[in-house]
Design a protein around this nucleic acid. Structure first.
Lengths: 207, 207
DNA sequence: CACTCATGTGTACACTGTCAACATGGAGGG
DNA sequence: CCCTCCATGTTGACAGTGTACACATGAGTG
């Protein structure tokens, strides 16, 4: 879960930049935002601090984002991509298993991320006021939808059933993650709760 | 859902106060915070604005709350009490019905509130960083627990089973509310999704 | 080479939370 | 009755926030 890419190459996160023009400021800002979120949580993610972390004035941010909220949204999008990557990784180790098992894998990934990186997760779970301008790349909702579709009887796909199954999967995972993060500090209790709830969600999904 | 208590008695929310000492500032602050949250959302809920709405200086807040976050937390607690009141109201119209039906009633109340008062709900669903100093009064979690307990076979209460059922109920309701609020603008689609998901949650609860 | 314009800087404004020093006046003891 | 105490209010200040404007820079193109 923790790739150490601070040492090697990477032009970023070094405030002592020489050139007047940064060159790849947009990505550097998102990188710095991610790092800041990990280190200090939501309150630390601030336009001026992110800019400073890139060795750049605050106003420079507005050459790449229409507002600070859009920057935050970009960082949140980054966090979602990280989550999605872990989901795909887990799924590649579960090819061939029945859809219900793979859905559980996705749910476990979601919850594990929320508990391992609560700061980043608080970005993910923010109300998306400003929409991300890049929705490319892996998307958790599409992923869930693909698996849920496999539960449908061949030939006749009931869109309502698909939607309610998707919602149950996503809602229960999200809600569980939030509640565990805020109210259940004990890791053992967490594990037991996750298992118990996901069992029941599985039953509900197959109904 | 909307009790109009602005007109009648109530010393509050009138900036033109005469006495140097307000008399019931703490409650007035929470009231103003609630009104501000409804009107302008999370960003409008600010120490200075709340104080101004009470016709009082910002520093006066710190005579009643150790920090602005504690004030916000108090407003959030207020919002939770409002939710709980609606839950109890619905339940009093459902006495005698089977536990699973009453749990559904609670879930519907939770989701309805989230969609009817999204601004207040965003307070409710904030990570509870600073704990409320008054946890008296109706509590949604206890309410759910009481009903879930009725699902247990008489004589042998399995705490693990109770916990996972509570979590499933709360997590799915919370997650559903959040997702509907952020991603499903169409009211009809919302209704259908709520019904479909709650059906499945019911199945999972009884398993 | 000269010009343009995307990208950076500096400064300023309104707003935020919070604190320290001071003001007020209601409540209770003499 | 008056007087004093202290809970509760005010003022002013400081650091930090997002954001806009005018200006500076220099990379790339004619």
């Amino acid at each position: 879960m923790e790739g150490d890419r601070t040492a090697a190459g990477s032009t970023r996160s070094r405030p002592e930049r020489t050139a007047y023009h940064h060159g790849a400021l947009r990505d550097a800002l998102v990188d710095a935002g991610e790092a800041l979120a990990r280190a200090e949580g939501l309150d630390g993610v601030t336009v001026r601090r992110i800019a400073a972390a890139c060795g750049v004035s605050a106003a420079a941010v507005y050459r790449h984002f229409p507002s600070g909220d859009h920057l935050i949204a970009a960082v949140a999008q980054r966090a979602r991509e990280i989550m999605a990557r872990d989901m795909f990784a887990r799924l590649s180790s579960a090819t061939g298993r029945p859809p219900i098992d793979r859905l559980r894998e996705v749910g476990e990934s979601y919850i594990a991320f929320a508990l391992a990186e609560p700061q980043l997760f608080s970005l993910v779970s923010m109300p998306m006021t400003t929409p991300p301008d890049r929705v490319d790349d892996p998307n958790a909702a599409d992923l869930v939808r693909d698996i849920v579709l496999e539960l449908e009887p061949p030939g006749e796909v009931d869109e309502g059933r698909v939607a309610s199954r998707m919602m149950l999967a996503q809602a229960s995972a999200h809600g569980l993650a939030v509640i565990l993060r805020d109210f259940v500090p004990d890791p053992l209790a967490r594990e037991q709760l996750i298992a118990g709830v996901l069992d029941r969600v599985g039953v509900g999904l197959e109904a």
